[in-house]
Design a protein around this nucleic acid. Structure first.
Lengths: 336, 336
DNA sequence: AAGAGACAGTTAATCGTTTAAGCATACATT
DNA sequence: AATGTATGCTTAAACGATTAACTGTCTCTT
């Protein structure tokens, strides 16, 4: 800017006005406007966003913290968020928390130091205070994929209760009675809601006695799920299983494959989220699809409204799942 | 900082010295050091990285531009890069180019405006000038996954030639003769190298006459690949096919599934990169695994060395693939 | 007693923008 | 002629850190 000002022979203030389109309000003479524009082009002027941010207090940067960007579900989500953010001249800084509170806290700190304008956060278990702190400091936040009850933060989540509920109904409709749910041992509401949907649907179908919710811990999920699935079939006489997340579904499928269980004759399976692997499993997997596009878009929209100060109540958006019916949950062999 | 200085009754200079660990060199009295530390803690002082960046000229931020973060290969890569960067207090701003030059250019511009310290770039076709411009402006760049011949930029890529070459050898060893390669119609070197590896291996095996390289365009890859695979089997009497990327492999598998071709009896298949779907395909897919971890780690290492000014030649790193042998490329039915 | 050197701090410029406030000059109005 | 106001531009502070250069005191040496 100094160079431009020097070249044209005016002050940097005028340059700033012109380059920001304020030439009308600030009554810059047309001749000077042209000279400044020309000089800017000639010198290939690029504004320094860092300086601008320091002055303006806003960085046009969003912090996105997911559990793991290598997980395709979060990859897709990140993509939608990136695209949507860029439509509004925002840029995304990325972080993976590994469902780990300490990591999540340090990511939040790092991004705060960098003055991000707001966060899209997939909160981990036990991180409620972190989020609460952000909210109480009036830092724009949208929780995505999960929310934290009792914490007045905007959230965009799946209709988790309805999703597992429909999965159960679907299985019951196809003649399955002994239906199990494999979930993470997590107090996070999205997981609890998936469990509740399962339980209430089982009760409603008069199969409360058959309820079986098995949980595995995040850190040993793969091995645990494998043992679990074998036990379900061999010991519990389970006829159908619903997996409560994308990763759990995959772990479960590895187990099914390893033990060569026939699907759906020996064990019907319903997965979560969606994954190309679901398509190539034999038979293709029935699953509960999340509206990733909408989740990402709405998250950005709400966050930006919040940043612009246009939002005055706490928004809680619950988006509908879609049951994709395929071979893995076909009619039970017990039924005609 | 002003608050701390005010509270302790010293200048901000001293506060800066102490908080940056320069109390020894700058000979700050122990008493004051303690007071400043205490005040900083009490006021919960967080340095403003934007201000620091403006002053120091470095943002501790890397720009990562991949083709599409929703693609699991790039998701994994991003994850490795994120982790590695954070070990050195760097943060990653993410962008997806969709293999589109214009998008890539605008991403680079945006990130330059934000003064990123360097780029990790998956270059798209025809973007050579963009990269050249960065290099000539002395902006640290590492090309990843692909490189641009003739452009003196550091690069970390797969041993593409060796990979397809081994795939062919493996198939030939198992008795296949009519082996095709499905690749993107792209002039990018990584693709050309994969093609070259295939061709030379075919020639070396005395099957030059059977060479068949089919290409599809990025934008219509899914539909094209589907038609292509059907034609290969039905018209070209192809016995085995190698797919040159992750996405192409998936598209190919959808076709194989749709037409119910038996693998490997009717068509042997070798995939690229790795994907959970490969595990659940029946039979599991033989594929050329990329060392994603190493690619990401080395890219960050080289970029940081460059940023620190420690790098004086152009580094071109070629990492070895690994052939994961499984059922989809088993012995040809024509052999014993 | 004078000079050197260590010690402990302050001042003010700087990074690249933005923007409120001020300053001339010209012209129109009474 | 005095006043008002529109026009066109400049000045300088501010954002929050970093850091070179400087200013005082003491203490020690010769």
């Amino acid at each position: 800017m100094k160079d431009i000002a020097g070249k044209v022979g005016v002050s940097t203030a005028l340059v700033s006005y012109v380059l920001n389109g304020l030439e009308k309000e600030k009554r810059v003479s047309p001749a000077v406007v042209e000279k400044i524009r020309a000089a800017a082009r000639e010198l290939n002027y690029k504004p320094n966003q860092i300086a601008r941010s320091l002055r303006s207090g806003s960085t046009n940067t969003l912090g996105l913290i997911v559990a793991d960007i290598a997980n395709p579900f979060f990859g897709q989500l990140a993509r939608v968020i990136e695209d949507e953010a860029s439509r509004f001249q925002y840029v995304v800084i990325l972080g993976s928390s590994d469902e780990d509170c300490a990591k999540s806290a340090s990511l939040i700190d790092t991004l705060l130091d960098r003055q991000v304008d707001g966060f899209i956060l997939v909160p981990s278990e036990g991180c409620a205070e972190q989020v609460e702190l952000l909210v109480s400091r009036n830092i724009p936040v949208v929780l995505t994929d999960r929310y934290l009850p009792g914490i007045p933060a905007h959230a965009v989540v799946l209709d988790n209760y309805g999703a597992t509920r429909e999965a159960v109904s679907h299985l019951v409709g196809n003649g399955y009675r002994r239906i199990a749910l494999v979930a993470y041992a997590s107090s996070l509401v999205h997981m609890q809601e998936r469990i509740r949907g399962y339980c209430e649907a089982m009760d409603a179908a008069g199969m409360g006695a058959n309820k079986l919710v098995e949980t595995v811990s995040y850190d040993s999920a793969k091995a645990d799920t494998e043992k679990l699935v074998a036990a379900l079939v061999k010991e519990q006489k389970t006829e159908a299983v619903i997996f409560a997340t994308n990763a759990l579904t995959l772990f479960g499928l590895y187990a099914v494959k390893k033990h060569n269980f026939r699907v759906p004759e020996e064990l019907a399976v319903i997965g979560f989220d969606g994954n190309e692997a679901f398509d190539f499993f034999t038979p293709p997997l029935t699953y509960l699809r999340q509206p990733v596009e909408a989740i990402g878009r709405e998250s950005v929209r709400i966050l930006l409204e919040q940043i612009r100060g246009e939002l005055h109540q706490t928004v809680h958006l619950e988006l509908k799942h879609q049951l994709v019916e395929r071979g893995s949950s076909g009619k039970s062999p017990g039924v005609d």
